[in-house]
Design a protein around this nucleic acid. Structure first.
Lengths: 223, 223
DNA sequence: AACGGGTTTCAGAGTGTTTTCAGCCTTTTT
DNA sequence: AAAAAGGCTGAAAACACTCTGAAACCCGTT
């Protein structure tokens, strides 16, 4: 994560740099609006902390110029004035957040985290075991480069198995959790789905197996 | 973008609705604090315009209650009194901005823009994916030299898909964000619009496709 | 009153999912 | 060894979800 800090007050600038470095960000710091704009133009940063009152070009100008150049890097404006006015102006120029001095270091890091989080890709949830990965979002089962789509019920069953790998999942539990306690699904329903899943595991060439434990249930294992 | 307007004065409420619709916001309007609170609780709005003096529950109460429920939707308070007092009270209650009547329509839209921007991603004037570009201003979808106009709802759906390309957008989310949580729109409404969009994508000769992930939603992809 | 774009509704066709069933296999019991 | 119980799986039927053309509807404009 790269952060650009644009702040002319040396003391404050050093403090900011310090704070962000502690959070393991890679920090570049510059001291006027012109440099800030130039550096930001590279588009290499994940967020920019920008003072409003700066030599050469003020913060508003810089954000506006960046947005004009289609640079969408999140910008956090920093100002001593806590009037609503400059807040509105700043955000209208294209800034993403706004903070008034003085502030607590935690507040700064929290806001930067929020800004970079929006940007960055959402970590999609998944469950894994041995050589397979189940993408919960898309309902796809992966092994190496191969992938198959699981239907809704297949997905539910697979999730239960993956939730306690190497452990026996009672057939009864599958029926209750997937078909519901009310349903009149029979054992064979679960058996049919286990069969579907085995076929798909084979299809993607996984070495994961669904073992049958007679009278008890199924267990996810390898080989 | 969904906006909730809470204003008991019918004339003003209609005017507000009108103004926001012209800016391509999806608007819901209610006429008292209780309804305002209920609607806002859904958390489906991108901003709320809230009058202070309202029947049943006043604006301050509503914001306070919302914040208590951890609903962080940006709130713009509206009041006839331009005393400093109520301004401070309002912001203290958890409102994000404050405006006194009467006001210029441009001021309202600028402030809403600021609020919604701070909230989420930078409002871009266009969104792109692979070989298509969506011009948000004109509502036109482009591919190479071809172009088609999208209707309001088509635009909203397309924006949602483009906001997370290659990722599944639940059908439910389309319904909530485009038709509103209160609406009685059925799945088929969304399906119909997906169908419209596919036709238009084909029309402009794009290789972008809207994939169906059964039971889950849709995903923008290529080929 | 007629028009036209946008939106909703409806119904039939299409497709993927789920259930059902029967025959076969394996393990356990008699 | 035969019978019984439990489990597997291919095939077909039943079902649910989705797509889409056409018609109806709504609303502001001509």
């Amino acid at each position: 994560m790269r952060i650009l800090i644009v702040e002319d007050e040396r003391r404050l600038c050093d403090a900011l740099t310090q704070i962000m470095r502690e959070q393991k960000y890679a920090v570049d710091a510059v001291y006027d609006g012109e440099d800030g704009y130039q550096y930001a133009c590279s588009g290499d940063y994940d967020a920019i902390v920008l003072d409003v009152m700066l030599p050469k070009r003020n913060g508003f100008e810089v954000v506006r110029a960046l947005r004009k150049e289609k640079i969408a890097t999140p910008v956090l404006l920093l100002t001593a004035r806590d009037e609503l006015e400059s807040k509105v102006t700043g955000l209208d120029c294209g800034a993403d957040d706004y903070m008034t001095k003085p502030f607590a270091p935690e507040e700064l890091t929290a806001r930067i985290r929020a800004l970079t989080r929006r940007q960055g890709e959402v970590v999609l949830e998944e469950m894994a075991f041995d050589d397979i990965v189940l993408e919960l979002g898309s309902g796809d089962l992966l092994c190496g480069t191969k992938r198959v789509h699981l239907s809704f019920k297949e997905l539910e069953v697979m999730k239960l198995l993956l939730a306690s790998p190497n452990r026996i999942v009672p057939k009864e539990q599958l029926l209750v959790k997937v078909w519901g306690a009310e349903s009149d699904a029979e054992d064979n329903n679960a058996e049919a789905y286990i069969s579907f899943l085995r076929k798909k595991l084979f299809f993607i060439g996984s070495k994961v197996a669904i073992n049958t434990i007679r009278k008890l249930g199924y267990r996810l294992g390898t080989e």
